[in-house]
């Protein structure tokens, strides 16, 4: 039984690690994707022997120790069948070691990868270099981004029922339905929502951050190559949740700058009507977007906090 287990485990692990692993989601488009893929593969390589071990044992028990099997052993009761100190201690030690290793490894990955692409709330603890500076610049309206400068690019993701839009504070704060990103750059996503909770899931970028109303949820990634990716909402947000997706592109830095500047000027007239760039927005309670008091007989609760309020509410 042990031999079967060892052989099957080694074969399965090798096949997985070399043949399947490099193709596992979320792919290799960004630094976070590469690392999250690696973590997944490490976990699966550890999990396969466990799965195979239990399955082989169950299969062995079901055939050899079955009452129908001609050489089935007679069950023996008594103290020896009730406990086996050695087996128990080893079992507990091994599971504990594996578990503690996994927790340590996972924590290390989260810290080193600046949250591994997950949403880190308004005040992230683990930030890539320059990200805080870029955020402050975006907030004060002085953000700049140019190819080759190696500065993080701040992008705001706004979720609403049922679409995502993106604002680029480094380019006048224009809002676009397209998410275009430069390659080989650190991206700082600031995710928020105008209505219910959505979740910004850029699958191939390996970024996932909940879009909470009036909360700025920050997530980081670093693009490694050009390519396409899908954005989906991964938190139930109402009836068209399944249709809340669009596509994005990672392009070369110069292509990105060209797209951004041309969109900035093309959208200039619209951008003027947008609320000033802020981390969170509260839709106007009397507005057409549908506030909390749609019949309009009640005064807005807090007239200063309307869509585009300069003060972050969180």
């Amino acid at each position: 039984m042990t031999t079967i287990w060892v052989i099957l485990s080694v074969v399965a692990d090798l096949v997985f690690w070399f043949a399947v692993g490099p193709h596992m989601p979320p792919g290799r488009l960004t630094e976070t994707a590469i690392n999250n893929q690696k973590t997944f593969n490490v976990l699966l390589v550890l999990a396969l022997p466990v799965l195979i071990g239990v399955w082989v044992y169950l299969g062995y028990a079901a055939t050899v120790w079955s009452a129908k099997h001609k050489d089935a052993p007679e069950s023996v009761g008594g103290e020896a069948a009730r406990t086996n100190r050695k087996a128990q201690v080893w079992w507990i030690v091994i599971t504990s070691v594996v578990v503690l290793f996994l927790a340590g490894y996972g924590s290390y990955a989260v810290v080193v990868e600046h949250g591994s692409g997950g949403g880190e709330g308004p005040n992230p603890v683990w930030t890539p270099q320059g990200a805080v500076k870029a955020e402050l610049a975006a907030q004060s309206g002085t953000a700049q981004w140019a190819p080759g400068e190696d500065k993080p690019l701040v992008v705001q993701v706004i979720g609403q029922q049922w679409k995502f839009t993106y604002r680029y504070p480094a380019f006048g704060g224009f809002e676009s339905a397209q998410l275009i990103l430069p390659a080989h750059a650190t991206i700082v996503f600031n995710v928020t929502s105008l209505d219910v909770i959505h979740s910004f899931w850029a699958y191939q970028l390996s970024v996932k951050a909940d879009a909470n109303p009036q909360v700025n949820d920050v997530a980081y990634t670093e693009t490694k190559q050009t390519g396409n990716f899908t954005v989906r909402c991964s938190e139930l947000c109402g009836i068209w949740h399944g249709s809340m997706f669009n596509y994005g592109k990672v392009v070369s830095q110069s292509d990105f700058e060209q797209w951004a500047t041309s969109t900035e000027s093309a959208n200039a007239a619209n951008t003027k009507n947008l609320p000033p760039f802020a981390w969170t927005y509260v839709p106007d309670a009397n507005g057409t977007a549908g506030g909390l008091y749609p019949d309009g007989t009640v005064t807005p609760y807090s007239p200063s906090e309307v869509y585009g309020s300069k003060t972050p509410a969180s």
């Binding site: 999250n36 973590t39 976990l43 239990v54 399955w55 996972g106 997950g118 938190e235």
Partner: peptide
Amino acid sequence: MALFFNFLIGGVTGVFLSDVPVNVTVHGG
């Protein structure tokens, strides 16, 4: 016997989900 077969898969994938970097890929899906 089936419980052990099934719960093993459920339990092992639970460890995957508890790992934050993997959770980014699989949460909400």
